[in-house]
Structure formats: structure tokens, C-alpha cells
Design a protein around this nucleic acid. Sequence first.
DNA 1: CCGTATTCGGTTAGCGCTAACATACGCGCC
DNA 2: GGCGCGTATGTTAGCGCTAACCGAATACGG
Lengths: 357, 357
Amino acid sequence: MRNTRKVTLADVAAAAGVSLMTASRVMRRTGHVSARTRARVEAAAAELGYVANRIASTLAGGPTSLVGVVFPSLSNHVYSEVFAGISAVFDPTPLSAFVALGNYHAAHEEKVVRDILSWQPAGVILTGLDHTEGTREMLVTSGVPVVEIMDVDGVPIGGNVGISFIEAGALVAREVLASGYRRIALVGSRMPDDLLATRRMEGARRVLQRAGVPPVAELHDEGRSSIALGRRMTAMLLDAHPAIDCIIYSNDLIAAGGLLHCLAEGWDIPGRLGLVGFNAVDTLEILPLRLATVDPRRREIGETAARMIVGAALAPSGPPPAGKEGGEAARNPGIRKLAPRFSRGETLRPVVAGAGG
Amino acid sequence: MRNTRKVTLADVAAAAGVSLMTASRVMRRTGHVSARTRARVEAAAAELGYVANRIASTLAGGPTSLVGVVFPSLSNHVYSEVFAGISAVFDPTPLSAFVALGNYHAAHEEKVVRDILSWQPAGVILTGLDHTEGTREMLVTSGVPVVEIMDVDGVPIGGNVGISFIEAGALVAREVLASGYRRIALVGSRMPDDLLATRRMEGARRVLQRAGVPPVAELHDEGRSSIALGRRMTAMLLDAHPAIDCIIYSNDLIAAGGLLHCLAEGWDIPGRLGLVGFNAVDTLEILPLRLATVDPRRREIGETAARMIVGAALAPSGPPPAGKEGGEAARNPGIRKLAPRFSRGETLRPVVAGAGG
DNA sequence: CCGTATTCGGTTAGCGCTAACATACGCGCC
DNA sequence: GGCGCGTATGTTAGCGCTAACCGAATACGG
């Protein structure tokens, strides 16, 4: 049993005693083939263990079915959930996802996108709206349906689904003000690199400034988010600025660290000190207090993006309804802005009538 | 600027005033091309925005660089970490990962593997050793380097990296016995489907039986692991069997739920009741007590598997050293068994001299 | 000045498959 | 009988690229 040599369609056709083309039609279930011939070809294919070669069929003009997906990282739980949403939508379709990581680095992302495009994908899903000029150009020129996810604060290349991270940050700040906090600090990890986190912080900062209570302190760190980092940053911050009455964190993980630190140090939460995270990470339900946070609706983002790609990739061949730009509409998957969901948890005081916001 | 038509190598060659072949050589950096010609071709390529077509080059016999990776799911944090390890190793190589999900279902996995093989991959990474006969046959026939990960309890198709889940379960049971617990229960989620969890439980069960203290109770649930599920199952279990003095969980998430339930109900942990999880999930460091658990070394598993694929895929062309089976050795990536790491945490009593084990 | 080595570049064939166009045949109809 | 029509199969060309081979130009010692 050393038949490691590749079995081609020609072998199947020969075994079934038909032409190459008939075998091809049987495998693709197109055209007119009699039931008897079909059965013979299928039997031959099974017998020989034929596995189609999509490389060849794609080159010959068949439909493509790979979709490139670029995330900055997958260790961040957020993206694995987005991916789960994407996968679930692709599953019943002929499309399959091809993941690549941009590592929070635009130049690296450009390389990765070039790589993806070289596979003639049926679509590309990118994280965020910030890409190099080269990346944008390649994607536009390629004519491949593109959907940018997560963020909607900017001009997309093609489709776009996500939330406004600036508004999400602003939302957090308004809720904090509504709780009556006034001496507020901002704490962020992975800060210059994680653009979305940076944007949330920007949104919060603006609202605070406009309300006349600019941040009392801001602390950033380049390191990746972890509970330990949250503890450390919080300790440092409260040491330097004991008057702070609320901390807005760039994500739940460091907020959790902060919460644990504060509880250990005996701070009254949320009375004396309020804390807010971001992302609605579900494993954090084990915290002693439910953390105030914002759900960016990542699963839905993944699902919607995938549906946009499915729509654009699987139906671009319809006859142009009117103008010569018929395909154009199908190619453009549209823009969809979701609303982030705030949840107050138990680490912010209830809303004070008449306070801020 | 509506040049959406594909730019081919022929276009680049024409623009540079050289033949197709010379342009090809420049793009691949092979053969002898003078510096001047190379510069001209590169300029033309950049000018036209040329993106290579790997579909064509693969078909023409160039090297493949896609590696199919099949996980049962990515919502399980375990696999996203394995994937991070794989990505990190592939990053500096020309290989890229192509993720597909088997959804804990062997028949679905077979479809997915067929799909992967149709892309002529440079390698395939599969989770676990249990696959349909059809899957195994396809992979063997294809001649593609295969590495099965996570589990090493069985006969692999090609390479294999992971831990013995049976031994890991046995390890947990021995440690529990060493702590002096004797009325032990087993609790598992996603149970018939998650084969690895099933195997851990099997390993634990055997040790307990051999030690003369078979499990007092066993509780399984088909649902996906969550803290809420852990709480529910634990409540149910302790209600029915209040004499239990230790619970072995199939994973950390439900163990965390159990721990929170028990603390809320005032159980003395680890004195009256011991708890053990599995997986060493890092975000659980926020629990009030450090959970006893086992680290399956998933990051290393991903890295090792990726290295095996890199070795097999990138160096199979060396001249056969002696026998005619020269390529065979390079193709077979080997077997690597890692040792799971137990950590006692604060939810099991310290080891009792002379007790069990 | 020739022969051999060495570089540089071009030509041909073909990877495995599919669009697009034949071809062959049966059937009913005026 | 000839025509149109629909179904079932075959033939041709070519997708974009690369291996393998092949000439032309340059270099250099004898």
C-alpha cells in the first residue's frame, strides 16, 4: 500500500471509463450527467481515494473559498471569540478561514496581507481601520471583498462592522460621572500598540475634560495585560495619588488585578473608589464583586463580518441590474455600527440623580 | 485609478523589458540575474503593485506553505494558546497556519481534513489521536507530514506531541490520595464529546479503584464548561452525596465554579473538602484560593508541533543519505511525550506522610 | 585566436483543473 | 425527411507560474 503518488481527476476518469470533463462535472455536481455515469465516477473516486485539488481548480477559474482573517493576536481572548463567530457562520458555507496574526504591528500586517492576497482569497477580514498605505492599496487593487472589524471610527476600505471605541470610552466616562466620581484616573496596558485601547482612553479623556474634571492621573504600560500588571499599576497609582476616587482601565484583566489589590488593601469599593474595566470577559464572573465593564459585542462582530463576506463572495455574479457597475454593489459589504453595552456591576456606585453626564 | 484587473508576472516582465522567466527569477531570488535587471524588475513590480499568485506557483511545482491546523474548538482557551505557540514558530518561516474547527465531531473532522488536503498543504496538525478511518487513510495516502497534538495515548499517524491524559488523570488521583482524601467524586463537562477530558477521568478512576477507594460518585454533563455549570453540578453533587471529601473536575473552569459554590456555602476548603481542576488557566489566579491543577504545557505542545512540521516540510529534499527511503525519515516528525505539571495550590491539603499514592 | 568555464537571459512544456465550445444522439413536430 | 430542441458526453485552450533545458554573451588562459 505505497500509493503515495497523487491521484488526479484524470485517473478517476480513466478508471470510470469517461472523459476528464465528465468526471469534473460529477465532482462539482454541475451540468448534465446521467445517473449511471455519475455513480460510476463516484465509485471510481472513492475507490482511488481521490482528493480534489483546489489549487488547480482555483487557477482554472473555479470559485475561491479561502478567507483571510487578520487579528493582532489570538492570546487576547477577545479575538478568539470573534473568530468563533466567524467560524460558525462560515461552517455551512464552502468558505474557510485562514488566520494570520499581525502582532500589533502595521508593517508586519502588510506582509501578512500580501501573503493572504497571494492565495487569491474570496475575502479578507482585518482588525481595525489603521493600516499602512500599502496595505490599503493592495486590497483595493485586488478587488477582493474586505471587511474591517471591531472599530468604526474611520474610513473603511470596504465593509465595516464594530463599535466606536471612542464612543465606548466616552460612555464609560459618562457613567462614571453619573455615579458622582470626580477625581478620575486612567490606566492602560499595551498602550501605544493597542490602538483600540488607546481610542477608548481618548474617548473617556475627552468627556472628562469637557465635563471640567480632566483625569487626575494617567498611567500607561507597554506590557501585555495581566492581572499581575493590573495589581502593580494600581498600587503605583494609588500610592502617588491617594485622592483618586475612580479608575478607568483599558481592559478587564488589569481592572481585575486592580480590584483584587484594592480589596486586599481594604479600600471601600465602590464607595470610596470606583473601578471600571472593558470587554466583559466572562471568566471574570468569579471576582468577588461583579466588575463594571462594557461588552463590545465581539461574537456578533465576528458573525456579521463573516456574513458580509459570505454575501459579497458568494453572490457577486448576478447580472448587473442597471449600470455597468453592477458587481460593485455586491462587492461592497456595507457598514454596520453596533452599540456597546455598559454594565454597572458592583464596582461603581449607583447613578446619582443630577450628577455629571 | 480603476486598475482592478489582475497584474501578472507577464505584465511585470513586459514593463521591465525582460522575459517572464527572468522576472520569475527575480521574484524568487534564485538563479543568476544581474543587479541592473533585478533592480528594473523590482521597480516594475512595485510600480504595478504586483502581488504574486501562489495558486499558480504551487500548481507549477513551487513549494507549498500552508499548514492546516484542526482544533475541536477555539472558544476553549487551551487551544488558542496552542495556536499562539504554533504561530510564533511559523512566523519567521514561509509557512502559515490555516485553522479549521472539528467541533468535537469525528465525521465533521473528516470533511475538514479533506478540505485541507485539497489545498496541497505543507503539513497538517490535528488535535488528538482519535480520527475516522477515512481521515487516517487520506492523510497517509497524501504523503503530507502530519503531527497529532495534545494526547499521546495511542498510535499516531505521523508525528505526535503531547502528554498522556490517562497519566495526567492518574497523577491527579495520586496527589489527591497523598493528601489523605478517600471519599472522592469525579465531575466532568462536555463529557462524551471531549475525549481528552474523558481520558483524564479514566486515568483518575483507575488509580482510585486500584487504591481500593473507587469514586463515590460521578457526574457528567454535555454542556460546555462554564463557571455557572460548575456551580450547578457541584451543588447537585454535594446535595446527593454530602460525605464526599474531594472532587476531581475535568477542567479549571467548572472547578472554579465549584470552589465559589463551596466557599459561599461555608465549606472548609481544603480541610473538609478538597478540589482539583485541570489546565492551569491563568486568569483563574484571581480566585480567592489558588486552585490545585495540572498544567498540560499547551504552549510547548504548539511550539513543538510547529517545529516538527517545519522540519518535515522545509527539509525533505536533501539527498537520500543511504537507502532509497531517504525522504522517509525527514517526513516522519517523531514522537515527543511531555510531562504534565501538577500544582497543589490551596485547594488540596498538604501531603500526608504515609497516605495513599 | 580558440576552447572551456561562467554568467545571464530566453524558450518550451506542463502542473490539474475548468470555461467555452463542439459533437452526438434521441425525440417530437410540421 | 428535415428541422429544432434538449440532454449527455467529448475536445480545445488556457489559468499564472516554474522546472528543465538551451542559447548568447563575456572572461580568460594558453
